[in-house]
Amino acid sequence: MSGLSPLSLVYAVLSYAVTAVFFGGLLHKLWGYAVTPNPLNIATTPAPATRGGVIVSNIVNIATFSSLFKGNRWTWIGGYAFHVILLAVFARHLRLFLHPVPPLLVLIQPVALLGALLLPLPLIYLLARRKAVDRYAWISSPADYFVLVLLLLIGLSGLGLKFVSHSDMVGIKQFLLGLVMASPVDMPPHPAFIIHFTLVLMLAAYFPFSKLMHAGGVFFSPTRTMVDDPRERRHVNPWAAK
């Protein structure tokens, strides 16, 4: 890390620290979800009676948010739009971490850019929703607003970087690759990028300790992932088994 500017040094250290916190926290949480037993079969029925059926129903739910759709169409529209757009934005950013860039990523750039442009809309909608309905206002805490505002700021600063205050993308990619390859180089001292990058680091550090863990947790929910076959197959409770 010798020869780095002070700013680059600070951000290199921060980046590694956040990466460690993110992956450490993620592993810790997911490990907890994975190894904690289900003492009883608590599938919410009607549920598929086969493992294959459960996998299909979970894929459908995760891909379409079908249970939320059943629950509230207005929340579904905002939530689903946000998540699809977020996925597009992730895809768009992958080119900055991959070298060489796979051709497919180049092809999807226009679509992904459209996503990035739209990102603030569902976020503003979701924010307004929390304020507008008395039930949602009651359950919303500062933490719930914090996540939405943080994501909104990340989106806006990203758009600023793209359309208002350009920065040296080659330099940024070099900086990011340097971090990934454990050989940090100087970060382009561009204010818009520094703001955008700092906000992203905050989000990543916050992720494992927050409700954002729903992104991992959704794969483990016992009411959804257990097979409805308790009469046919004896479910053994790991901590009660002799």
Binding site: Y33, T36, P37, Y136, I139, K211, H214, G217, F220
Partner: peptide, 17 residues
């Protein structure tokens, strides 16, 4: 002891559905 409890305390996003 209960995956349900551990997970459910963590992952609610308070969507209000």
């Amino acid at each position: 002891k209960y995956k349900s409890l551990q997970l459910f305390l963590d992952v609610c996003v308070k969507c209000g559905a």
